[in-house]
């Protein structure tokens, strides 16, 4: 009967597959969606220039990528985890528990975080950290007590800002960008306004004060975007008064529809970020399993290619896309060449 034959062949496929899952030809990468575009640009150029197959780059977020990275050593686990933040102590421990002990940390460059609004919208051209803190903090510290944020218009926060409703689109809590936004904008603003010091003076301990500073209001004035920057862009497109948080690279590809604001008087650009003048930026990393070097064909070549001057340098394709290249790239190159792992080198 033909059904019997079909079933038999189907079972044969399954059996075959169980044995074939050992070898892997291509480098396997997973992690941050912020690093994904850079990694895919490098992977594409790597596939074009080397005889190795193009690496496969999965997205899914820094935490998900590092979790996958820490699952163990062997061809069935990924070789590289992309991250828009540094690996955490807990993650290093989880890695060690599964036998992933020698991890190489590679910093590829810096990514700026910019504040942009509709090009035809109100004049959002200059912000300061204080204004963002005042506008978005859940509670303000006034006269010795915490009172809920009462601002509804930007002009109430600062007379120089447009007289329109506050409506901000900020990255959701699962994004690495949110952490940077809270620390480098909201917390910095809290400290600059003196609210942080005032809380300490009033006898609040440091952790609580920091937590109160960074708590973002949840009354609908600020909207958490759990998707990508494309979602933020769509929201901004529908709301002329909206201000959104974007990555510098994303903004640079959409300058025809977005208008960017300065932060404390500094306009975001690759130059101001690499010089450190523009305050809101963060380093981007990837993590490599040293145990896979030499085991997976092309892994070492890919990592070296990624940090080479022609790729990650100031005139390379990554900078062209919007990465702020690392002034200390040569150190990274050296560390990669010597396969320096975390905790031993640097």
């Amino acid at each position: 009967m033909s059904f019997a034959k079909l079933t038999a062949s189907a079972l044969a496929i399954t059996a075959l597959s169980a044995t074939a899952g050992v070898a892997r030809d291509q480098v396997s990468v997973a992690g941050s969606s912020t690093v994904l575009p850079y990694a895919s640009i490098v992977a594409e150029a790597f596939g074009e220039n080397f005889d190795y197959p193009t690496p496969v780059i999965e997205s899914g977020g820094s935490s998900a990528g590092l979790k996958k990275f820490c699952e163990g050593v062997g061809p069935n686990t990924i070789d590289i985890a992309n991250a828009s933040r540094q690996i955490r102590g807990g993650e290093v421990e989880a890695c060690a528990a599964n036998g992933v002990t020698e991890i190489m940390e590679v910093r590829i460059g810096y990514d700026g975080i910019v504040f942009a609004s509709q090009i035809a919208g109100p004049e959002f051209t200059a912000f300061t950290e204080e204004q963002w803190y005042e506008a978005l903090a859940a509670e303000h510290f006034k006269d010795g007590e915490l009172v809920p944020n009462a601002y509804t218009k930007w002009s109430e926060v600062d007379a120089s800002l447009p007289d329109v409703e506050i409506s901000a689109y900020i990255p959701g809590t699962k994004h690495g960008t949110r952490e940077v936004f809270e620390e480098k904008v909201i917390l910095a603003g809290c400290e600059e306004t003196g609210a942080y010091q005032a809380m300490l003076d009033a006898g609040v301990d440091e952790d609580t004060a920091e937590g109160k500073c960074m708590a973002v209001r949840t009354d609908g004035v600020s909207v958490d975007i759990d998707g990508d920057y494309t979602e933020t862009l769509a929201r901004i497109g529908a709301n002329p008064n909206g201000v959104g948080v974007f990555g510098l690279a994303f903004y640079e590809n959409n300058t025809a529809t977005l208008k960017v604001a300065t932060m404390s008087g500094v306009a975001p650009s690759t130059e101001t970020i690499s010089s450190g003048e523009y305050p809101v930026s963060r380093p981007l990393f990837f993590y490599v399993k040293k145990a896979h070097m030499g085991e997976i064909d092309g892994l070492k070549e890919f990592v070296e290619f990624f940090v080479s001057d022609a790729v990650a340098g100031p005139s390379g394709p990554l900078a062209q896309y919007g990465l702020v290249s690392d002034p200390e790239l040569s150190k990274t190159q050296e560390a990669v060449a010597n396969e320096v792992t975390m905790g031993t080198g640097s």
């Binding site: 597959s17 291509q26 990694a39 999965e58």
Partner: peptide, 20 residues
Amino acid sequence: LLLIGMVAFVNNYPESIFDP
């Protein structure tokens, strides 16, 4: 497919059902 790693940047044609 998200969980089994198929939501990815893949640049090479798969030669068999075992390739990405």
